[in-house]
């Protein structure tokens, strides 16, 4: 179907494309700026010659990041939190969602209300901090995993999805003598794979990017996750917490703080940028499911 466009429409269409292009450029420029800086020479950075393309291309900054034990320790802590945390998140979310997806289950409404209330009326930070302190979880990675074990929002997505599965299928499984626990792991979990992927991504990205939790509960440098490390690196450039102090001082003529900061930012962002294009459609699916109103 070809519709003839008027002169005004043509102007609008061109302007529209231009405006959207401008938005994209605005998103890309800060990223490009840091990538360019991280690949530039010390002199180029100091004399502020770097714009959006590397000047005096070299990989010195990356060499220091790769050799920096403290950076990799934080990277490892974060990786551990992502793996353990997401596993626990998924187990608990599916386990809680399955019974709550049964509209006939007595008390379901009350339990749902009990959970939704926590989304609307949030507890202040200080009592939460005191609770973690009393549970002796300060300076433990469990303080970053257990308090966020279930996201009420993600659980609602999961319930919505499970409800689309036909009840007859569960009946048949029960007639075959399957227990409800086996039904959850053998039937429900595999059948809701699309939403599983989405939730795993939401939880994993949440753990990867978590900064507030470590700021509250982690003071031990050996346990600081990546985001806390990055914050210390960028806003304080405190040698003790940043690491690689000696080798850095030795070769301080080769790298500048800015160069090192930029290279670290790039290395810490790369995992997200790499997985993002492949998983984009799952992310969007999750965002859309969230908008379904019961």
């Amino acid at each position: 179907m070809k519709i003839r466009r008027s002169w005004g429409e043509k102007v609008f269409d061109s302007a529209n494309i231009a405006v959207l292009l401008l938005f994209c450029v605005a998103v890309i420029i800060p990223l490009l700026n840091v990538i360019a800086g991280s690949l530039s020479s010390n002199e180029a950075i100091i004399h502020s010659q770097v714009k959006l393309w590397p000047v005096g291309f070299n990989l010195k900054n990356y060499e220091y990041v790769v050799q920096n034990g403290v950076f990799w320790r934080s990277f490892g802590v974060t990786l551990q939190i992502v793996l353990i945390g997401t596993t626990i998140n998924m187990l608990l979310t599916i386990l809680t969602s399955y019974p709550l997806s049964k509209s006939w289950l007595g008390g379901r409404k009350i339990i749902l209300l009990f959970i939704i209330f926590t989304m609307i009326f949030q507890a202040p930070i200080v009592p939460m901090y005191l609770l973690i302190k009393n549970l002796a979880l300060l300076n433990s990675i469990w303080a970053l995993i257990i308090p966020g074990a279930i996201s009420a929002f993600n659980m609602m997505l999961c319930i919505t999805f499970i409800r689309t599965l036909p009840e007859e299928m569960f009946e048949a499984a029960r007639v075959d003598g399957m227990s409800e626990y086996r039904i959850v792991w053998k039937i429900v979990a595999p059948l809701i794979m699309p939403i599983n992927v989405t939730l795993i991504l939401f939880y994993a990205v949440g753990h990867w990017n978590n900064y507030f939790g470590p700021l509250l509960y982690i003071t031990d440098r050996a346990l600081q996750p990546l985001q806390l490390y990055l914050y210390n690196l960028i806003s304080q450039f405190d040698m003790d917490s940043v690491g690689g102090g000696e080798s850095l001082l030795e070769l301080s003529t080769a790298v500048t703080p800015q160069g090192l900061q930029m290279a670290t930012i790039v290395v810490a962002t790369v995992p997200i940028i790499i997985v993002y294009p492949f998983l984009q459609k799952h992310f969007i699916k999750g965002a859309l499911l969230g908008s379904v109103k019961e």
Binding site: L31, N209, Q227, L230, I234, I272
Partner: peptide, 10 residues
């Protein structure tokens, strides 16, 4: 999907 820490860095 980029953390606030990184956005601050940028």
């Amino acid at each position: 999907f980029i953390s606030w820490t990184i956005v601050f860095g940028l």
